[in-house]
């Protein structure tokens, strides 16, 4: 069974809707991603974050749903646009914010930065900033799970633009041949950096239309519908865990902001932006929950809890000292050193 979505006709979830508990967790997570990343935007403008950031504003439903559906010991592999995916695995906000600010209390003590968020203890196996590189790497984790019969699944997120790099095709074939326990999730936000994916791709749906080339089901879903995404996540994770092999999911979505902090996003038609702003995943979900009888005060409480938590995390991060030069020469090698000669 495949689900398709053409803009303007939202898909309905195919299976039973998730439990209320799950739905409230999804709502909370999406709000957390939204408020956190808006704060990242603010602190960037205040000069507290240098370099670059790539936000997932507008794309929250996808990582939130997978984060909620994954087993604790499953693995996430994400891109430079990975704040949301990291938070979705339950990594606390303060060390992420501190990492963006380049502080000692950062997730990697300031050595990685925004584009490389990693927290192995949470199964967040890295954010990779060379387009396509992490698809083959995620395969390796899946291969190890299969070899050790651990039941773990690797979930690998990437963008539409990534479907045109060789590593994508090598990885899909490799995963299919060995029926690896992996889910490839293409977050199709219609643009690579500044170029529309349709302008540079031979097929309309860059991931879904290529699934058949690897013997995989064509899965095209509404990435702005958290229920659809949760159902898709559950189904694809289950398939991987039960030994049936990989899935390639194309989730349609749209980023509210530019590609990165340097980008005002002027290349996107106003009309298109306006239409997609109407399809905000959090607004849609809030309205749905309310219409299904969830009390507004329950959602209001979540909103204010999250706002408080983001404010606290930001202050904790700001209070963290700079990393300290002692870290510079550490941890090139497994003995903790960077010694290359005697």
């Amino acid at each position: 069974m495949s689900m398709t979505y053409a803009p303007g006709e939202p898909t309905q979830p195919a299976g039973a809707p998730p439990s209320l508990q799950v739905r409230l967790a999804l709502y909370r997570r999406m709000v957390e991603l939204r408020v956190f990343e808006k704060r990242v935007y603010d602190v960037f403008l205040q000069g507290l974050v240098k370099g670059t950031t790539h936000l997932s504003l507008g794309e929250e439903a996808i990582s939130a749903a997978y984060g909620e559906a994954m087993r604790k010991d499953d693995w996430t592999f994400a891109t430079y646009r990975g704040h949301a995916h990291t938070l979705s695995r339950g990594v606390p906000m303060a060390p992420i914010m501190a990492e963006l600010m380049g502080r000692r209390g950062g997730l990697m003590a300031g050595k990685g930065g925004s584009m490389h968020l990693t927290s192995v203890e949470h199964g967040m196996m890295g954010s990779y900033a060379i387009v396509g590189a992490h698809l083959p790497i995620a395969n390796g984790a899946a291969l190890s799970a299969k070899y050790r019969k651990s039941g773990q699944v690797a979930v690998c997120f990437f963008g539409d633009g990534t479907t045109n790099i060789g590593a994508f095709h090598e990885a899909l074939n490799f995963a299919a041949v060995w029926k690896l326990p992996i889910v490839f999730v293409c977050e199709n936000n219609l643009y690579m950096e500044y170029t529309a994916i349709s302008a540079v791709t031979a097929v309309e749906h860059p991931a879904a239309d290529r699934a058949g080339a690897y013997g995989l089901e064509r899965i095209l879903v509404d990435g702005n519908d958290a229920d659809v995404m949760y159902e898709t996540a559950t189904r694809t994770l289950e398939r991987a865990r039960s030994g049936e092999g990989p899935s390639l999911v194309e989730a349609l979505t749209y980023r509210h902001a530019g590609h990165s902090r340097a980008d005002p996003g002027k290349y996107r038609p106003d009309q298109e932006v306006a239409e997609w702003m109407q399809r905000d995943p959090i607004d849609i979900y809030r309205a749905r929950l309310l219409s299904q009888g969830v009390d507004a005060s329950v959602l209001g409480r979540i909103d204010s809890d999250v706002a408080d938590a983001v404010a606290v995390a930001t202050e904790v991060a700001k209070a963290s000292p700079p990393p300290g030069e002692d870290l510079i020469m550490k941890d090139l090698w497994s003995d903790g050193s960077s010694t290359w000669r005697n």
Binding site: H134, L135, G140, S144, R148, A167, A171
Partner: peptide
């Protein structure tokens, strides 16, 4: 065949696979 594996001509997939496998216990 689970330990000695013939791969496709996919050097990126090969190195990616050993990297991911080495991150996760092999």
């Amino acid at each position: 065949p689970e330990r000695v594996i013939d791969t496709p001509i996919s050097e990126q997939a090969i190195l990616g696979a050993i990297m991911g496998a080495s991150m996760t216990g092999l």
